[in-house]
Amino acid sequence: MARRLILHIGDCKTGSTVIQTMLARGDCAPRDARLFVPGNGVHGALPRSLGQRPAQYPARWRGMAKRLAEAEWDVAILSSELFEFSDPGKVARALRDHMGQWWDDLSVLVYVRPHAGRVLSQFCENIKLGHDTGTLDEFYRRFRRAGRLKYAERLDGWRAEFGDKLVVRPFVRDHLHQGDVRHDFAAQVFGADGYSLSDTGQDDNSALSIPDLALMRVLQRVMNEGDVPVDTHVSLGKQLGQFLRNNALPDPAPKLRLHRKIAEDIRTRCADDAVRMDAEWVGAPCFAPALDSIDSQPDAADLSPEAIFDPATLRRITLWAALLLRQAQADPEGFGRMVRGQGQAD
């Protein structure tokens, strides 16, 4: 059997964590193939070496190529949503230079979320991970001006490098195999009848409620004032976010919605892109109808902690965050390991 290399490139906020968890746990079992997923199923060092950490190139790619060459497999999967921010040309060159023996049997798989859902979910995720967001309006303007909502244009760049190796899937439940991104991913890789999937549950990476987002803002604001490493912000946000979801209140608090001004702006600015996505990548109405059905509210919600919590509660949260900051400053590496859980990696 010829070896097949699968490069899963995101996007962010399209179930990448769920897919990576499935692969790391061994929940997905192909029926007639040996599957190899290096490490913990998350391979962010590869795209980082092509962008924000150039000193790590080409070592990261050489190391991964060595692992692939030494393992026995029919299908190998490399996955990171951070490829969304990579230059497709650099990715193609790295693959040809270091994994060229599998180029002819390479597939590049990407999931893309409808425009409004991506804006809202990314804003909430940035709050959780401690990235600078400002207000929802400020975040939306930056996100839009950076070209993050020009899906078809971005995919044109990947298609120019990878041609029909590129497989684009809409992150829309009605368009996913069995309505589940895990099943859809497995079906794309192994065929609809070529795998079994253990029902061990999946990590919930859904958006937090408004009060939980406000709590995250307090925590990450204190961490920012203490100048701790970015990885600490991310790890702490991911783990606390999961704890909050796993311990939801019996009467769930409302979740954030786009307000009408942003919703209308997205409908206008993204209309042509949605039409292209449906015509060129989905082959059915998907992105355009999603624009027509944006769930919005009249006015912007106030996410400031001072508007959500009474003074006594805000004081307790701030003091708790300050205690965590002291621990993080005293032993950054140990704190990071503690937050992630012993033996886990970013």
Rank of each mutant, 00 (worst) to 15 (best):
R145A: 13
S198T: 10
S86A: 14
G341M: 03
I266L: 15
F287M: 11
Q297H: 07
S80D: 04
S296M: 14
R48K: 04
L244M: 12
H177T: 13
A253G: 12
D74K: 13
I210D: 06
K150I: 01
S235G: 03
L149S: 15
P289M: 14
E306P: 08
G15F: 08
P332H: 09
R173Y: 01
L208V: 03
F185L: 09
V18G: 03
P298K: 00
H98Q: 12
H43C: 01
A29I: 15
D174P: 04
V75W: 11
R269S: 15
A29P: 00
Q220T: 07
S79G: 02
G237L: 07
G15T: 13
V339G: 08
D346Y: 00
R182V: 13
G63Q: 12
L68D: 14
M338E: 06
A330L: 03
R217S: 14
A92T: 02
Q239Y: 05
L323R: 11
A76T: 10
D265Q: 14
H8V: 05
V112E: 15
P229E: 10
G134M: 12
Q20G: 00
P252R: 09
R145D: 15
E153S: 13
S198A: 15
E153H: 15
Q101V: 09
A214I: 07
G63C: 03
D132L: 03
R245D: 08
H43E: 05
D193M: 01
F287C: 07
F85T: 02
H43V: 02
V37D: 13
D199M: 06
M1W: 10
D137L: 10
W73V: 05
P311M: 13
Q342C: 01
R93W: 02
Q56K: 06
Y140G: 15
A274C: 11
L249C: 05
P252C: 04
F36N: 06
V119M: 07
G179A: 13
I77W: 07
C12D: 01
V275H: 14
E280D: 13
E70P: 00
T133Y: 04
A307F: 02
I9T: 12
N247C: 08
C286E: 05
D212Y: 04
Q20H: 00
L240D: 06
N126R: 10
Q56P: 02
Q178N: 13
L149T: 15
R48Q: 04
C12E: 08
G63I: 00
W281L: 12
G191A: 00
P58G: 06
N246E: 15
F243C: 04
P58Y: 00
R276Q: 10
Q242N: 06
Q239R: 11
L314G: 08
E138N: 13
D292Y: 04
A65C: 08
L82K: 03
R340L: 14
R60P: 01
L208C: 09
C28K: 09
Q220S: 06
P250N: 08
K165S: 09
D87I: 03
R145L: 14
A274H: 12
D137W: 13
M338T: 05
L176R: 08
L249F: 08
R34P: 12
R315E: 14
D174H: 09
D11L: 12
D104K: 15
D292Q: 14
T133A: 13
